[in-house]
Each structure stands twice: as structure tokens, then as C-alpha cells.
Nucleic acid binder design. Structure first.
Lengths: 188, 188
DNA sequence: GTGCTACTTGACTGCATGGTCAAGAAAATA
DNA sequence: TATTTTCTTGACCATGCAGTCAAGTAGCAC
């Protein structure tokens, strides 16, 4: 995209990327493009010229925006041994990420199902979650009637909540996550 | 409202009420008024003339739309003896109501915080819930660290989910409610 | 039936969004 | 510097909603 562009165009592509990173980081991937344009100091039309569409812009920044966060969770969880701890840590960290980073939440909620970079990121997290769930169930630590789809829903649900109930404090949000985690363990 | 109105106006008020009941029942209280107007066979302007505002219309129908449902839950729960059963039945029925009736969900989510009829209905359900929670905690059946605000949130959350994740089947929605309930009981 | 007045209409404003394009501006080239 | 090519602009279209109002319609009293 930055191949044989005119100087001003190259400058703009970079400026728009940077602005999109800032704006999307703060407000998620559904923020109006006018805001990105304003932040970049260009007109909306330029964004469409340089990136083709809203999706094009998102595809160009989503990895830089979210990849690290998702990999960070996987790495942190892989450092743990106990299957239950792994499962709960995966969910907890994912849920907190959804609260802290609207853009990551959009990825985990599949807000833009068309985008492949986004889908790839989603699958990365989701696939790892499946495995962690499977292991915890094999160890008898987590209810057997939870399916991988249930797990995906537990994350989707939390995303919807993080997005809609944005007046709650992080501490309250965090505290309530324990109620949910508790319900997933095997009854003893 | 039906005092000294001209014949056509009286007819229209009734028609609009009936249409609003149908349309709001199906789509919740945030359905565009154009749909109500179309269903009633009048123009949007007439609704505003007869009911003053969107809120006026909602105030005029919300009780008929929701009161019975909420009272039904309270009655059903009061017929039970065991505090835990009462608590779980209250939550379960409320959550299912939120899935089945978008309008009731809007009441329980306080979608229109300005409306007093709506607030009254909300308080009815919420106050009863508090009491049921308190009894269940006094009996040692439900976690002590759950506050009345947490209870309100458990319902608000479910409302957001019912509204946003409308592609899931009722059976799946129902099944997943058990996970949440399980997490609220005291660990044993 | 005639005229008064209550009532209804639908086109209008206003707002927020996504997305497009002709015309003008600026960089590159000669 | 003059010409060509690329790029940017912001006004514009479309959509979907809330809410308003001048002008036309229809019920009602006499």
C-alpha cells in the first residue's frame, strides 16, 4: 500500500493508521470514521481512497491493535500447570481484556465477521480456549455439560455486557466475574 | 384521555393503543413509532397529537403490557417455601421473561428511566428480588457477598444479552442460565 | 346544509451515520 | 516553469430515526 505513492499520500496513509490506532483503541472498531479523519487531519474521503472502505482500514490496523493482547493471555495461561487454574485464568483475562480494550472486545465478539485478520485473531483465542476447556473437563474440574459453543457464548455475553454497561467500575465488573466462574466448576 | 374527544379521535386513540400493544409486545418499547402508526392505520403525527410523545404512548400501554407478567412471577415464587428455591425461581423466571418479552425486558433494564409507570413496575420486581435474595442469604443458601446491586446487575446483564444475542435458541439460553445460578449458591 | 372547530395528514426539519464523486490542489516530470 | 498525473477535498446522496406544523379533512351543532 505504501509502494509507489506520492509523498503526501504516503504521509497520509501513515497518519491515518496512527490516528485509527488511537481512536479505535479508545472507542472500539465501530467508532465513526469522521473521528479518525479528524484525528488524522484529513477528510473522510481520503480514508476511503487510501483504504477502500471501513473494513480496509480496520484490516490494516487490527493486528497491531489486538494481537499482542491475545497472545499475552495465551502465554500467561500456558505458564500455569493446574487445568482448572488455566481455564479460569483464560476466562478471567479474556473478560478483563474485553472490559479494558473495546477494540479487542470487537474482535472477540466478531463485530465484523467479514474481516479475515479479525477472524484469524478470533480463532486464535477461541481455539486456545477450547483446548483449555477440554483439559479442565478431562481433569474433572469443570462441568462436563459445558460445550465449546457455551464457552464462546460466555465470552460473547461478557462482551455485550462490557459494551452496554459501561458505567460500572472495573472493580465491580471484576468481582462479579467470580460469580460466573464459580458456576462453571464441577459441583463437589 | 377519552373524555370529550371527537368520534374519530376516540377511535384512533383505541386503535393506536391496540397497535402499540401488538408492536411493542413483538419488538420492545424502542420500536420506531412509524411501525405503530402503520399498524394502527394512522400517521405518525396523530400518535404525537393523541399521546404527546413516545413516552406518553409507552406510559399508556406499558402496564397492560407488563404488569401481569411481573405479578405472575411474584405469585409463583410466593407459593414456594424453600428460600433457595424461591431465589432461583425468581431469577429463572425473570430471565426467561426477558427472553420471551422484549417489552418486559425494557422495563427490567430501565430502558426509559424517565417514565414513572415503568419505574413503578421495575421497583415492584426489584424490591421483591431484594427480599428473596435476603431470605436466601439468611438461610445460608446463597453467597453472602452478593449485594442487591449485584442482583440488579444479574438481571440487567441478562437483558442486554437477550436483546443482543437474539439468534440463540430458547433452549440454549435456558440451559446456560443454570451455569449462572450455580455460581450464586454458597460453596459447600 | 352550513359553518365552526377539532382532528389528521405527510411533508418537513434535525441529527447521526456510511459512503461517493466532480472539481480543485499539489506533487512529479520534463 | 509548464504540463501531466495523482491525490484531496467537502459537498453531496442515502438511510433511519425523532419530532413538528401548516394546510387540508371531517365530525358535529345548529
Amino acid at each position: 500500500m505504501t509502494g509507489r505513492l506520492r509523498a503526501d499520500a504516503r504521509r497520509n496513509v501513515e497518519g491515518i493508521r496512527r490516528a485509527a490506532l488511537d481512536v479505535f483503541r479508545a472507542g472500539g472498531l465501530t467508532t465513526p470514521l469522521d473521528e479518525v479523519a479528524r484525528a488524522a487531519g484529513v477528510s473522510k474521503g481520503t480514508i476511503y481512497h487510501r483504504f477502500g472502505s471501513r473494513r480496509g482500514l480496520i484490516d490494516a490496523v487490527v493486528e497491531e491493535l489486538v494481537l499482542e493482547r491475545i497472545e499475552g493471555i495465551i502465554t500467561a495461561v500456558e505458564a500455569l500447570d493446574d487445568p482448572l487454574e488455566r481455564f479460569e485464568e483464560y476466562l478471567l483475562r479474556t473478560w478483563l481484556l474485553q472490559f479494558d480494550e473495546p477494540a479487542a472486545n470487537d474482535v472477540l465478539m466478531r463485530t465484523l465477521p467479514e474481516s479475515e485478520p479479525l477472524t484469524t485473531l478470533f480463532d486464535r483465542s477461541c481455539g486456545f480456549g477450547r483446548q483449555v476447556l477440554h483439559d479442565a473437563q478431562a481433569a474433572g474440574a469443570v462441568r462436563d455439560d459445558i460445550t465449546p459453543e457455551d464457552l464462546a457464548y460466555l465470552i460473547l455475553e461478557r462482551g455485550v455486557i462490557a459494551r452496554a454497561c459501561d458505567q460500572q467500575t472495573r472493580d465491580d465488573y471484576r468481582r462479579r466475574l467470580d460469580f460466573v466462574l464459580r458456576g462453571l466448576r464441577t459441583a463437589r
